[in-house]
């Protein structure tokens, strides 16, 4: 059983190392606030890309993904600004609202296939964004929602104010690790096998008794729920959101993270999101050239590293083997 690929063997060492590194990272950068901001951005991008990858395990990419992140963000923000409930409530309300909309939309959306799914999900994403912009009184229009306070955790003996960036870093890290863990577990299980079976051959999956439509709706809903939580965290970190925060580019960058990282394992989106966010931040200093360079990096990695970063370990191993044979 453990020799088979039914339960993909976790590379515990790599994952553990990565988590340990993330835990001590603030100290390594000398608690530099800008670097910690980069760390938080990386966390959000990792969660966005990984949950998008979960939808990819069905064989499709949703361009509405940032839109659902937006639903979570707006729900949590409005719960605070209109009802005065802190993020500890907003988080779950954001997830629930995102899940509800995801389920309602998945029912018609999952009727479409292949390239038409991309297009339809893109339309969904645009409608979500433009609704935020259109209903000015409720969502604040293009100006967005301001003053979304970060929460305070009161344990009685200890009070943590998450307005502190370092505290927020660990909060984000916790939720992102949880997200990645959930997706990793689902993917390595029976559920993942079912989703990848649909990815591989939908017709055959159906005829072996898998309720393909239901599985698709469930997978889409879970992914959107997870990203809804991340949206809420994002809103309370930025303290300001607008429809532009969740436009098509955000989904597209998540897709780019997937492609550069690799599409076949959960390590792909994680590696892609971490590395490309760092590249993007490193290019910040180049001003106008930033987008151009990012485009070059993107095209170069697609053409020169087919399969993405996840294939790097195998490539290195191959290189070593070749050398040792000589």
């Amino acid at each position: 059983m453990d020799k088979s690929d039914i339960i993909a063997r976790p590379n515990r060492l790599v994952w553990g190392g990565l988590l340990a590194l993330a835990l001590v990272a603030p100290a390594l950068v000398g608690f530099d606030l800008y670097m910690i901001h980069v760390g938080i951005t990386i966390s959000f991008n990792v969660a966005l890309a990984t949950s998008l990858w979960m939808i990819w395990s069905l064989g499709v990419i949703s361009f509405a993904h940032a839109g659902f992140m937006g639903i979570g963000a707006y729900a949590s923000a409005l719960v605070l600004t209109k009802l005065g409930l802190s993020m500890w409530y907003g988080l779950w309300i954001g997830a629930a609202v995102s899940a509800l909309f995801a389920m309602l939309i998945a029912v018609p959306l999952m009727r479409t296939r292949a390239v038409y799914f991309f297009m339809a999900s893109w339309a969904v994403g645009e409608v979500i964004k433009r609704n935020f912009a259109y209903f000015k009184d409720f969502f604040g229009g293009w100006d967005g929602v301001f003053d979304i306070k970060p929460p305070v955790l009161d344990l009685g003996f200890l009070q943590i104010d998450f307005a502190n960036r370092i505290a927020y870093y660990y909060l984000a890290l916790f939720f992102v690790s949880l997200t990645v863990w959930i997706i990793y577990r689902m993917n390595a299980s029976r559920t993942g096998t079912i989703w990848w079976a649909i990815h591989e051959n939908e017709l055959l999956a159906q005829h072996t008794g898998i309720n393909v439509f239901r599985q698709k709706v469930v997978c889409f809903t879970i992914a959107c729920t997870l990203v809804g939580v991340i949206g809420a965290l994002y809103a309370h970190y930025q303290t300001y959101i607008s429809p532009k925060s969740f436009d098509i580019w955000k989904s597209e960058f998540a897709l780019v993270h997937l492609i550069v990282g690799g599409l076949t394992t959960v390590g792909g989106p994680v590696a892609g999101a971490i590395s490309l966010t760092m590249v993007d931040e490193a290019l910040r200093a180049t001003g106008y050239f930033r987008t151009i360079f990012f485009g070059v990096v993107l095209i170069a990695s697609v053409l020169l590293l087919p399969g993405g970063l996840e294939t790097v370990p195998a490539r290195i191993r191959k290189l070593f083997n070749r050398n040792s044979q000589k």
Partner: peptide
């Protein structure tokens, strides 16, 4: 199916496990 219809990227074992859903 008349034409070969499998989960092509899966291992042989995983194909059958998926069929056992």
């Amino acid at each position: 199916f008349q034409h070969v219809t499998l989960f092509k990227q899966f291992s042989v074992l995983k194909n059958v496990v998926a069929g056992n859903y």
